[in-house]
């Protein structure tokens, strides 16, 4: 085989491998593994809600898009379609209950449904912001034992 053909074949092979890497790790990269990302902040559910309520814009800059671990007394569990949401109510307002809403990762749905109101729970999730009534955490997992 002529040398230039060998070089060409190697270049083609490298191009295919490069394209495959870009496709897998850039274009088609996986969503973050929210459950296993270490929390950037750990605080009480009520403190998080109060911070957003008192200072919505600075709080949005600080917390939006971050993984936050909260502790609080659960008010209720809501289910809508496939969503299971742990709700911490701190106020009654125009949209009814206001507080912190934590939508669980699917794998935690069954466990979350069994949670009893008025019990203390620790939850970790991705903060998407404050909508003038509630602070919203999504992709939430239950924190058991002493993990963060």
């Amino acid at each position: 085989m002529k040398i230039w053909i060998k070089v060409l074949l190697v270049l083609i092979a490298l191009s295919i491998i490069g394209a495959a890497i870009v496709y897998k790790f850039v274009y088609n990269k996986q969503h973050p593994d929210y459950e296993n990302i270490e929390a950037s902040f750990t605080l009480s559910a009520q403190d998080l809600y109060q911070e957003f309520k008192k200072n919505p814009y600075p709080s949005a800059k600080l917390y939006n898009g971050k993984i936050i671990a909260i502790t609080g007394i659960l008010s209720k569990i809501e289910t809508a379609d496939s969503l299971v949401t742990a709700v911490f109510v701190f106020k009654q307002g125009d949209f009814g209950d206001e507080g912190l809403r934590c939508t669980m990762l699917k794998k935690y749905n069954k466990e979350a449904i069994k949670l009893q109101p008025d019990g203390e729970v620790r939850i970790k999730g991705y903060c998407t912001g404050y909508n003038d009534t509630d602070v919203v955490l999504e992709k939430c997992s239950l924190i058991i034992n002493n993990e963060n």
Binding site: D94, F95, T128, N131, D132, T133, D134, V136
Partner: peptide, 21 residues
């Protein structure tokens, strides 16, 4: 996770969306 309120008497309607959701 869309927040919405609607008054069936006046027709007033509002919804708010968090973009990161």
């Amino acid at each position: 996770q869309v927040n919405a309120a609607f008054d069936a008497t006046t027709g007033d309607f509002v919804f708010k969306v968090l973009m990161k959701s």
